[in-house]
């Protein structure tokens, strides 16, 4: 049996009377690429927010790398190796691309207030290395040379790439991508599939993505979990999901399936 990097059991999130995530069992084997899909409002992003510590589940447990992360502060979960991007890009606009990436190195850098003011050799060395790593990461995501550009001045596609570079700077074990191809044209989406594989293979990162573009989902993921109205309705390989009756109903509606049949 493959090792589980993430193991969520019976996760339930309620906002008042609204059940956003309904007793979902979900796990991610180490080193895999997994997708979470479902119609709008199915609870996918809420589930992401549980995994990154923004929401504490009403019930249920989440273990990351063998440790429970329920109730742990977001920055601690991030430091332990869960990085994410955002559905609506949330870069630090008035900071340069390199600085954006370097912010995410925060948990790994050691320099203190005193050593920063005194500019100790160790602090200068650390800063230099951090900068080199940032340059390298920007190159890795395909926007090398933009180090000194302000994040808000980058073109949209580059901003998406920068978000991934920033997330990778955390040296994550698990990378959560929230609708990474939103706003991309079909060509960009196609290259994205190879990109995700590169991230997994070269950086050794397990990937979980939320995605609406079915071409991307079917092309990139090894396993797919489908949520509808906060509940898990299907789970399996892309081929299994493609032919799953309930998934087709969720996406196309009942009458549509009858017509197809």
């Amino acid at each position: 049996m493959t090792e589980l990097l993430l193991d969520a059991r019976k996760v339930r999130v309620e906002f008042g009377g609204l059940v956003a995530v309904n007793d979902v069992d979900f796990n991610i084997p180490t080193g895999s690429i997994v997708a979470l899909i479902g119609p709008n409002g199915a609870g996918k992003t809420t589930f992401f927010n549980v995994l990154t510590g923004l929401y504490t589940p009403t019930r249920g447990g989440v273990h990351f790398d063998g440790v429970s992360i329920v109730g742990v502060a977001p920055h601690k979960i991030a430091a332990s190796g869960v990085a994410r991007t955002f559905q609506n890009i949330r870069l630090f606009g008035a900071m340069t691309a390199a600085e954006n990436v370097m912010v995410a190195m925060h948990p790994h850098l050691k320099s203190s207030v005193v050593s920063t003011i005194l500019r100790t050799p160790r602090q200068r060395h650390e800063e230099k290395e951090a900068r080199a790593t940032a340059t390298e990461l920007l190159k890795f995501v395909g926007i090398g040379g933009t180090e000194e550009e302000f994040a808000k001045n980058l073109p949209y596609g580059d901003q998406r790439r920068l978000e991934v570079a920033r997330a990778l700077a955390l040296r994550p074990k698990l990378l959560l991508l929230d609708e990474p191809t939103a706003g991309m044209n079909p060509q960009e989406s196609a290259t994205f599939t190879t990109f995700v594989h590169r991230v997994r293979d070269e950086k050794g990162v397990t990937v979980l993505l939320i995605e609406h573009d079915m071409k991307v989902v079917m092309g990139v993921s090894e396993r797919i979990t489908v949520l509808e109205y906060g509940a898990k309705i299907a789970e399996g390989t892309p081929a299994e999901i493609r032919s799953d009756q309930r998934v087709i109903e969720a996406y196309l509606g009942k009458s549509a399936t009858e017509e197809v049949a």
Partner: peptide, 8 residues
């Protein structure tokens, strides 16, 4: 975003 990038 800062807190999710590991900034306490």
């Amino acid at each position: 975003a800062a807190s999710l990038m590991g900034v306490p």
